[in-house]
């Protein structure tokens, strides 16, 4: 499975990537991007199975990227998990309305991330 991690903080990207590595099989592949524009570039040229997306980013933020992806036919069914420090429910609801499959409130923990991924891929 190829997972794309998008976050403007390198530390955060590494934390997420380490957490993922700890959880999954060795043949999983991880790609990362620092913002929405970069992420879009990677998505256009690679097959990605899961997108882990930060909310607040420069250039193209998480929600804008989701809107853009969902308007493109090839990304309508791409599983997206939004990672947010915003615990306010109306924000989460807005994101889900725009097409996010699930959300995760920071801080990212192994348990939290695993349970969210399992919800999308129950066979894992």
């Amino acid at each position: 499975m190829k997972i794309l991690v998008v976050d403007d903080s390198r530390i955060m990207r590494n934390i997420i990537k380490n957490t993922l590595q700890y959880l999954h099989q060795p043949d999983d592949e991880y790609v990362d991007a620092a913002d929405g524009v970069e992420a879009l570039e990677i998505l256009m040229h690679n097959h990605i199975d899961l997108l882990l997306l930060d909310w607040n980013m420069p250039r193209l933020n998480g929600l804008e990227l989701v809107k853009k992806l969902r308007s493109m036919e090839q990304f309508v069914h791409l599983p997206i998990i939004m990672i947010t420090s915003e615990a306010a429910k109306y924000n989460v609801i807005e994101a889900i309305k725009e097409g996010v499959n699930d959300y995760l409130v920071k801080p990212v923990t192994e348990r939290g991330l695993l349970s969210k991924i399992k919800r999308i891929f129950p066979h894992l």
């Binding site: 429910k89 109306y90 989460v92 609801i93 807005e94 889900i96 309305k97 499959n101 699930d102 959300y103 919800r119």
Partner: peptide, 21 residues
């Protein structure tokens, strides 16, 4: 928005429970 989600063809009941505003 939240209540409308209940009538969408694909719903995740657990998720809906979590984000109840």
């Amino acid at each position: 928005d939240y209540l409308d989600m209940f009538f969408k063809p694909t719903i995740n009941i657990q998720l809906l429970e979590e984000i109840n505003p």
